[in-house]
């Protein structure tokens, strides 16, 4: 089996990822400026109707996302007029995020072409892809929901994740272990990446929920909005995660001689699944709302992160992508 690597493209990929980190950081600053000097949401604003619905009913379903965020609040009296330049900074940040997103995508694609395989077969590539998925989830959701306030936190998370990958996980582009020669990588890992990206978005919102104090004015939206976004992201990603786990079992059936064998990765994927199922149950049937449900979602998020990172560091298992360079 040939093992040629297009080193030129591989280097380009590394540079693109570096540039992406910087762009995410700059975008984060833009978002942060808007948060700091833009509109402040007063305690009363927190009680107003969720913006998403107001916008959708008022202006049919075709409102542009960026303006939808501003409109309803413009009508709210008592709020000081936000600094125009601050709003502009937010807009610039959105554009920067899209550019960084494209850079992130290009970095992934060039690496994939350089090694002629799916570009998520080791920890470095996996983390880069998850950051990409989280930003994608944010950008896509932003076209339908006024969630620009999340930008600073998503961009920061992505920059930190990518930076961590570049500094501590980077390995030269190259061929993979025989166990990874399978079309299942396209199915199982892609699903895991997409679900993880959405879970990260939900996790960011859940943390903001705990930070937000509804009785005080804040740059953040109300707790209820934060909770809604958290829930929505989890509702979308839970079936994808379920599918990822099942696809993993089907791959294990091809590669390891059994579809389920309580490998550490399998155990923690299962624990994560149960934890998110418990969150959905707590809301849907036990009727938990607010802080209690948010904390369950964060427990689940902690399980997810432990599965993505901790399991690779602390346990040795059959997942051969999980080698952490030392």
């Amino acid at each position: 089996m040939p093992s040629q690597v297009n080193t030129g493209l591989a280097t380009l990929s590394d540079q693109l990822i570096l540039a992406t980190v910087l762009l995410y950081l700059v975008a984060m600053i833009g978002y942060a400026l808007e948060l700091a000097f833009g509109r402040v949401r007063t305690a009363s604003a927190a009680k107003r109707e969720p913006v998403a619905v107001g916008a959708a009913v008022g202006a049919s379903s075709s409102g542009s996302s960026a303006s939808a965020e501003v409109q309803p609040d413009a009508e709210t009296p008592r709020e000081p007029e936000p600094e125009a330049w601050a709003i502009k900074a937010g807009g610039v940040a959105v554009v920067l995020t899209w550019i960084a997103w494209a850079g992130n995508l290009a970095g992934i694609l060039t690496r994939g072409i350089a090694v002629d395989r799916w570009p998520w077969a080791n920890m470095y590539e996996f983390v880069v892809a998850i950051c990409f998925a989280a930003v994608t989830a944010f950008l896509v959701l932003m076209t339908r929901q006024p969630i620009r306030f999340l930008g600073a936190f998503v961009a920061l998370t992505a920059a930190l994740g990518l930076g961590f990958a570049v500094l501590f996980l980077h390995v030269q582009a190259g061929p993979v272990m025989p166990a990874l020669h399978s079309y299942w990588i396209a199915i199982h890992v892609t699903a895991a990446i997409v679900a993880s990206g959405l879970f990260i978005l939900a996790g960011v919102c859940a943390i903001l929920y705990l930070v937000r104090n509804d009785s005080r004015a804040s740059v953040l939206p109300s707790r209820r909005d934060l909770e809604r976004i958290t829930h929505r992201a989890i509702v979308i990603s839970f079936p994808i995660w379920t599918f990822a786990v099942i696809a993993g079992a089907m791959w294990a059936d091809r590669a390891w001689g059994r579809y389920w064998g309580w490998d550490p990765k399998e155990v923690w994927a299962f624990i994560t699944w149960v934890a998110y199922a418990a969150y959905l149950h707590a809301r849907a049937t036990a009727g938990w709302r607010g802080k209690a449900a948010i904390i369950v979602s964060l427990v689940a998020f902690a399980c997810l992160l432990f599965n993505l990172i901790g399991v690779n560091i602390f346990f040795s298992g059959l997942h051969s992508y999980a080698d952490v360079p030392n």
Partner: peptide, 21 residues
């Protein structure tokens, strides 16, 4: 009841932790 199911669900997940350690 739902509550028992939830508790059992949590125990189920918790019980598999030592299996990974």
């Amino acid at each position: 009841s739902m509550r028992t199911a939830l508790i059992l669900l949590f125990l189920f997940a918790l019980g598999s932790v030592p299996g990974s350690i």
